[in-house]
Design a protein around this nucleic acid. Sequence first.
RNA 1: GGGCGGUUAGCUCAGCUGGUUAGAGCGCUACGUUGACAUCGUAGAGGUCACUGGUUCGAGUCCAGUACCGCCCACCA
Length: 768
Amino acid sequence: IWDWMETYQERIKGQLRSLGASCDWSRYVFTMDPGPAHAVRVAFKHLYDKGLIYRGERIISWCPRCMTALSDLEVVHEDEQSFLWRLRYPLADGTGAIEVETTRPETMLGDTGVAVHPDDARYKQLVGKEVILPILGRRIPIVTDEIVDPEFGSGAVKVTPAHDPNDFEIGRRANLPAITVMNFDGTMNAEAGPFAGQAIEEARANVVKRLEADGALVGTEPYTHSVGHCDRCGSVIEPMISKQWFVNMQPLAKPAIEAARDGCIRFIPERFTGVYLNWMENVHDWCISRQLWWGHRIPIWYCDACGEVSATDQEALTACAACGSAEILQDPDVLDTWFSSGLWTFSTLGWPEKTPDLERFYPGHVLETGYDIIFLWVARMIFLGIEFLGEPPFKDVYLHGTVRDASGQRMSKTKGNVLDPTIITAEYGTDALRFALITASGPGNDLKMSTDRVVEARNFANKLFNATKFSLNAIAGAEIRRDESGAAAMPDGAALAVADAWVITRLHETIAEVTRQLDAYQLHEAGRSLYEFIWSEFCDWYIEAAKVRLYADEPDPAVPQTLAYVLERTLRLLHPFMPFVTEELWQQLPHPGEALIVAAWPETGETFTAQAEGFQAIMEAVRLIRNARAEQGVETARRIPAIVYPGASSDAYGSLRSELVSLARLDGDGLELRDGEPQAQEESVSIVSGSASIFLPLAGMIDVDAARARITREIELAEGEIDRANGMLANEQFVARAPANVVDGHRSKLAAATDRKALLQARLADLG
RNA sequence: GGGCGGUUAGCUCAGCUGGUUAGAGCGCUACGUUGACAUCGUAGAGGUCACUGGUUCGAGUCCAGUACCGCCCACCA
């Protein structure tokens, strides 16, 4: 171990030196920053002086391998198949025997009593008598205790105060001695008589054998019970009596409970409030001393001369505070790492000094962490924060789920299923990993992590990069107007083309939506909203539509202005999700201030409903034309003519004529916009899009059956809508009770579907 | 023993206060390199929202119960 430690220490020393840190190896404490170490001593001393930290001989959880005490939270219970042994303890007066049951026969060597329920009639006359402990022959009393369940087994229980928390309590109440029969290394000690020196497991088998031989074993039956294991090494935990340092939790828990009850602290998702409260309300005193070689050392000194025990906030005491003797020794134990971690919210800010940092940053607003450390860390930060600063360290606790591997297994180093973030980020980028993690699941829900998800996010970053590249190209030759902050100004409303007005409308809606989602801690939904807007709207539609005016003989200056405006605002929105890419790209664009990371959150703005609807009409027409082209097997590269009767959408078709040509790959010269009622066209495929009827003359290559099938299918869909809407509107209850906008929605839907059906039927008739 | 979560497309998951025909990515099918991007584009297939009952004009969404999966807490001798 020492060899290993030296190698390990040398390695860490090297790393720390390169960071400019110093280490004090004489005290086996790494000291990265003396501030927190000092804060830990101050905190300990404060609690000690207040009587909230005490040293006591108690039954604690002990790991025989790590050779240290553990807190309740470091013990993991697992169900294990074992046996329930029934033992017979003869009465000392020879008048009979009492039977007890146990899953730990070896602990009978430490039995100092037998307990029954005070109301158990079967044992009334036995209470106060003594039994002879088999093997050792010790005389031990029969006592009563409320905790004993008369229904379980024989209703009598052997009491081993030194090796069972329940028995410890029974023993304390009944004044039974505690006889420790095990050593701290997991072997039996001299009190175990003939079994001294044996390992616990070995002793168990031998005790059973011996009891059987002595006729004291009455029965054995298979039994499943929960066994505590060391969280760190997996060894079976032994309850042992030992002198340890504890925090008295009751006084600290009270205000921490109130803080969550009265809403000072809010958990997201809310259900974890109950989890927190349940733990806090039932919390046991906290064992904080550890017999480990790393950690903050307990700042307690013992005087050899006068026996004084004193806590200090100094790094070292040179003389006893009471008698002045120099013969003093520091407690060799260190603190539970969560004790110092619990002080984190203020020890990192210079506490106990009243520093400007502490003033400014305590309390914080939100803590973001995993739900698996609510007790270990969150709860402790809360009650320690309240104790030392008078108020909780944060208001909102946002909890994410556990990150699992692709098959749902919890990641662990021993299983080897951990995705190493340094490898992932090297391959896909930090932003990709971050975005993948944020959007993978909702608050408090576990997520299965695989590289597929990171690839998706990486592709998104790539998409954004390329969209910006395109935009920069467009902006390069243009003069971008800026607003007073220095950001690209909102394009002049009067000069806006329909496509510009549409994307600006969608941007402003997205700003409002993402802001709302972030305020509600729906981070994953906010991320998805941005993904949708950037990829499916800005890239797929706006950029494609913008190319027409950008590559025209006289480029429209509204395009670069719109690109600059939309992209700059969008990058601000996306920055929390992908900080590095967005910062880099933002720096290339006209922007206000020094850096995106300190830029203001964008504000929403004007929406242009009419233009947005116009553009959406064109989007639908484009989709339908593309669909018909695919259906008719028209090669992508081939430009085809079109005859359009726009109906009510004539404005949109007029102003977006070039965009329609470009996006649907039409033959520009062959596009005719006509007024009036749509007339059947020879050798054409027909489409009904909104109020528009579109004919694609495809002489000689029409698949009439496919065209007819499509129109028939669409008529059926329209009829479905008509039936549904009619059904709803015929329902008096619905019309009377549903909100007006919902009812109106169905009315306009019915009207649109009716018109659509008529137009479709006309086109079907054309086909003969 | 107590408490909590999940069950939606082949896979991984969204679906916020109940309101058009339930969405995304991956995968799948067919086409495709047009001057941001093949880490891409276009079109398409794919779901009785676990089950049963209830509330409601209306339920993936609210309530009750059932089944299965998972998690947390607990002094199960």
